[in-house]
C-alpha cells in the first residue's frame, strides 16, 4: 500500500466517523462540537473558518485546536472573506498572526499560509478559509475532502435550520389551533347564552301575560262586589221613607262607595307595582 492510498484510507475512515457523529446532531451547538472534534483527522490546519450567509443571517465558526468561535454578525466577516465573497476566486497566500483578529492571533504561525474558497449553494453562500504553516502543512490534495466536509456541514446546517423552522411553525400552528378552539368555545358560549336569554325572556313574558290576565280578572270581580251592592241598595231605596233612607240606606251606600274607592286605589297601586317590577326584570325595551 503506498502512502497516498494509506492517507486516503485514513481520511475515508475519519470522514465515515465524522458522518456517523453528524447524523446524531440536531442543533447548531452540537454541530460545531462534532466538527471541532473531527476536523483534525481530515486534514492539517491551524485555523479553520466557515461563514454561511443567507438572505438575512450570518452564521460562522472559527475552529482552532480545542477552541470554537461562533459568529452571528455581519461585522464578524473578515476583510479577506468580504473580498472572497465579492470575487468568488479561491486564493492562497502567506499570512502572519498579526494580520488576524484578536481572538485568533495567539495561534503561533511559522510561515503561515492562508487558503480561501467561495462555495455557492442553493440557499447559502459559503466562504471557507484555512490557515496552515510549516508545522501543520495543508496539502492541495486535501481540497477534495475539505469540500466534502463543507458540503456535509452545509447540508446538516440547512437541515437543522429547517427543522427548527418546522418546530417553530408547528408550535405557532398549535397555538393558532388552540386559539381557534378557544374562540369556538366562546362563540358556543355566546350562542348558548343568547338561547338562554331568549328562553328566559319568553318565559318572563308568558308569566307576565298570565299575571296581567289574572289581575284584570281579579280586578273585575273585586270591583263588581261593592258596585253590585250599591246598585242593590238603589233598587230597594224606593221602599224606604226619608227616615229609613237616612238611617238604613245612606250609611250602607257610603260604606260600599268607600269600599269601591279603596279597591280602585288598590288596583291602581298594584298594577303600577307590577309594571315597575316587570319593567325592571325584562328591560326597558320590552315596555
Amino acid at each position: 500500500m503506498n502512502l497516498a492510498a494509506a492517507k486516503y484510507r485514513i481520511a475515508y475512515e475519519a470522514f465515515s466517523k465524522f458522518s456517523g457523529s453528524l447524523s446524531r446532531v440536531d442543533n447548531l451547538e452540537d454541530l460545531s462540537t462534532v466538527v471541532s472534534k473531527n476536523l483534525k483527522y481530515l486534514f492539517n490546519f491551524k485555523i479553520f473558518r466557515i461563514i454561511l450567509l443567507d438572505k438575512d443571517t450570518v452564521t460562522g465558526y472559527t475552529f482552532i485546536k480545542n477552541e470554537i468561535w461562533a459568529h452571528k454578525n455581519q461585522e464578524d466577516i473578515l476583510d479577506y472573506e468580504k473580498k472572497l465573497l465579492q470575487d468568488q476566486i479561491p486564493f492562497s497566500y502567506a499570512i502572519s498572526s498579526e494580520e488576524l483578529p484578536g481572538y485568533i492571533n495567539h495561534v503561533p504561525l511559522k510561515n503561515g499560509q492562508l487558503w480561501g474558497w467561495y462555495l455557492p449553494y442553493t440557499n447559502y453562500k459559503v466562504c471557507v478559509s484555512l490557515i496552515a504553516d510549516d508545522q501543520t502543512q495543508f496539502s492541495y490534495s486535501d481540497v477534495d475532502i475539505l469540500h466534502l466536509l463543507v458540503d456535509t456541514l452545509t447540508s446538516k446546517y440547512r437541515q437543522i435550520c429547517l427543522n427548527q423552522e418546522i418546530i417553530l411553525k408547528n408550535k405557532r400552528l398549535e397555538e393558532a389551533v388552540g386559539q381557534i378552539a378557544l374562540k369556538n368555545k366562546e362563540i358556543e358560549q355566546i350562542n348558548s347564552n343568547q338561547q338562554n336569554v331568549i328562553e328566559l325572556r319568553t318565559r318572563e313574558l308568558r308569566f307576565k301575560n298570565k299575571k296581567i290576565l289574572e289581575l284584570s280578572r281579579l280586578n273585575a270581580h273585586n270591583l263588581r262586589e261593592p258596585l253590585c251592592r250599591i246598585l242593590g241598595l238603589l233598587e230597594i231605596a224606593d221602599y224606604y221613607d226619608e227616615q229609613g233612607l237616612r238611617n238604613e240606606i245612606l250609611p250602607k251606600l257610603c260604606e260600599s262607595s268607600l269600599e269601591l274607592d279603596a279597591i280602585f286605589k288598590n288596583v291602581v297601586a298594584k298594577s303600577e307595582k307590577e309594571i315597575e317590577y316587570y319593567g325592571k326584570t325584562i328591560g326597558n325595551n320590552d315596555e
Binding site: C228, R229, G232, L233, E235, I236, Y239, K252, E255, S256
Partner: peptide, 15 residues
C-alpha cells in the same frame, strides 16, 4: 259573606 248583600236580598224578598 257580605252582610249587606243579605240585607238587600232580604228586602227584595220582602218586597
Amino acid at each position: 259573606d257580605q252582610q249587606m248583600a243579605n240585607f238587600i236580598n232580604k228586602k227584595l224578598i220582602e218586597i
